[in-house]
Every structure is written in structure tokens, then in C-alpha cells.
């Protein structure tokens, strides 16, 4: 597997955008200006980007409560997302959804989701639609280790095989369902082991390694596009922040996150590999870092200076008529 220089640059930019976006939301949320609740994806970037690099706007994804990374990876516009999180009228969903309900159907992003395990049934629908339309599209649901234990997920795995749907189920196992360790709450060694029970391939991949994710994702997506049916993929990775902003994380080990950042950070591993192999230069990566920092700064300024929804907006966007 080899990636062109432009693809490598794109992958790095997306991962950096997600990291910078989440680090900034972490700081901004603490000021009290952001309404509601946020759950940050920092640390898990290689998973969202490794999958979404293979997708086009016809392909659909369903996300989780920790959805900002999936949105950015799928191409949702960053200014719109920041405004949405700030509850502003020019947000992706007119400021009515907030962090956990960012959806952009034109980009194939079916939505972040406040319900744990709600994504898999949605992609069975999207997968069935693609199958009827014969447009070669695929549908991907990201769930966490907590979501992987939900009945909705298990039913969807069964249905996807029964109907031979072009679906990929990605279990992002960051070790904790809120504060409950997955080593304790998941019944088997690997979530991917469950695939055998549903008659589909199951693959475990190191979710810190973009290249490993990209390769595994590519195979599963190709198989799905060609009518070969669903796959269950488990990305083992870590989240850098708490379950939610303000989580004291007393359930985590001393320096647990610090050690992961030092040894397995996905951006660090990516940079090391591409520079050591001479695929990209450090200067190219530094330039992206700088551009992304400015982009995120601008998105915060943009959001803060944007108007909030008005009382009259309450009555709009309540029902949607699909053509």
C-alpha cells in the first residue's frame, strides 16, 4: 500500500485539524461560553481519518457522542462546526444541534449521536439504500467499546450479514465506556472476535497507527463496494481527555495518558514515519500545523461573533420532507 504525497498531506492535515479543534474546544468549554456538553476525540484521530480517507460524499457515516473527529474527517466544514458547538445560527445545524448532533447529509455525515449504540442501525438503512440504488456506496458506523455491547449494535451486525449490506462497523475501543473499563465490561478479548458469531470478517487494528488503519479500512471498504458484505473492525486506541469535559478521571492510572502521548501519539507516529522514509519533510508538516492553528483560531473568532438563533427559529427545522 502506498499513498501519494498529496494524500499523505491530506491525512496529516485532517488529523491535525481534529487535534487542534479538540484542544481548543477543551480550553473554550472551560470558560463557560459553550452551552451543553462536549466529548473530545483527541488521541483517536488516526481512526476517523484512516477510514474517511477512502470515502466520498455518497458514502455515509454515523458517529457517536464523541463525533467532532468523524465530522472533520468526513469533510464537514470547520467554521460551521465551531459555530454549531457555540449554538450559533450559522452553525452546521443552525445552532440547534450542538456538539452531539452535528449532521451534514451533503457530506454523507448522518450525525453525531447522543444515544450510545444508535449508529449501527442507521447505517444498515444507509447500506440498504446504497444496495438498492446500486451506486457502490458504503456506510460506516463508529461506535465505542460501550456501544459495542449494546443490543442495537449486535442486532445490526446480524442484519448486515443477513442482507449482505455494504456496511463497516468500527468499534473504537478507547478502554472506557464513560468510566467503566472495557477489559471488565467487554465479554471477550477483542470486540472484533464477535464478528465470527455474525458470519463476517473481524479485524483488530492499532488505532494509533494511521497506516495500519488505512490499510485495514481499505480492504473492508473495497469488499463492501464489490458486494462482499460487512466487516467488523476494532481500533484499539486512547482518548486524551475525560469522557466529558470536567471528568476527573479518577478511574485512570497515574500518568496513563502522559505515557500514551509520549509513546503512541498518532500524529507523532505519522510524522516520524513519513519524515524517516523521506515521504514528507518536517517543513511541510510544520507549515500545515501553522495553517491549521490559524484556521482554528479564526473559527473560534467567527463563532463568537456570530448571531444566536432567534425565538422565531424555534419553529423551523422541526420536520423534514425527504424527496
Amino acid at each position: 500500500m502506498s499513498l501519494s504525497e498529496s494524500k499523505l498531506l491530506q491525512a496529516y492535515r485532517k488529523m491535525r485539524q481534529i487535534r487542534a479543534f479538540e484542544d481548543r474546544v477543551h480550553d473554550e468549554f472551560a470558560t463557560g461560553e459553550i452551552p451543553g456538553f462536549v466529548h473530545l476525540y483527541a488521541g483517536e484521530e488516526a481512526s476517523a481519518v484512516g477510514f474517511c480517507m477512502h470515502l466520498n460524499d455518497e458514502d455515509r457515516i454515523a458517529s457517536t457522542h464523541r463525533g467532532h473527529g468523524h465530522c472533520i474527517a468526513k469533510g464537514v466544514e470547520i467554521n460551521g462546526m465551531m459555530s454549531e458547538i457555540y449554538g450559533r445560527r450559522n452553525g452546521t445545524c443552525a445552532g440547534k444541534g450542538g456538539s452531539m448532533h452535528i449532521a451534514d447529509l451533503e457530506k454523507g455525515m448522518m450525525g453525531a449521536n447522543g444515544i450510545v449504540g444508535a449508529g449501527p442501525p442507521l447505517i444498515c438503512g444507509a447500506g440498504l439504500a446504497a444496495k438498492f440504488r446500486k451506486n457502490g456506496a458504503v456506510a460506516i458506523a463508529f461506535v465505542g467499546d460501550g456501544g459495542s455491547n449494546q443490543g442495537t449494535t449486535l442486532e445490526s451486525l446480524n442484519l448486515a450479514t443477513v442482507w449482505n449490506l455494504p456496511c463497516i462497523f468500527v468499534a473504537e475501543n478507547n478502554g472506557y465506556a464513560e468510566s467503566t473499563g472495557s477489559k471488565w465490561s467487554v465479554s471477550c478479548e477483542n470486540i472484533a472476535d464477535r464478528a465470527a458469531a455474525f458470519g463476517m470478517p473481524g479485524v483488530v487494528v492499532d488505532g494509533h497507527d494511521f497506516f495500519a488503519v488505512y490499510e485495514v479500512a481499505g480492504e473492508a471498504i473495497k469488499r463492501a463496494r464489490e458486494g462482499g458484505g460487512p466487516t467488523l473492525i476494532e481500533c484499539k486506541l486512547n482518548r486524551y481527555y475525560g469522557h466529558f469535559e470536567g471528568d476527573a478521571q479518577t478511574y485512570r492510572g497515574v500518568d496513563e495518558v502522559k505515557k500514551v502521548k509520549e509513546s503512541k501519539d498518532c500524529l507523532m507516529l505519522f510524522s516520524k514515519r513519513v519524515t524517516e522514509q523521506g515521504l514528507l519533510t518536517q517543513a511541510q508538516l510544520d507549515a500545515i500545523d501553522k495553517e491549521v492553528a490559524a484556521e482554528i483560531e479564526a473559527s473560534v473568532e467567527h463563532a463568537k461573533s456570530s448571531a444566536k438563533p432567534t425565538a422565531a427559529d424555534l419553529m423551523t427545522d422541526v420536520y423534514v420532507s425527504y424527496p
Binding site: F29, A30, T31, G32, I34, G36, F37, F244, E245, G246, D247
Partner: peptide, 11 residues
Amino acid sequence: VTMPKWGLSMV
């Protein structure tokens, strides 16, 4: 250094 907002409902 300011009083942070943590979680959904902290005021």
C-alpha cells in the same frame, strides 16, 4: 485563572 465549566449543568 477562572472558574471552569465542567459537565453539562455546572453554574
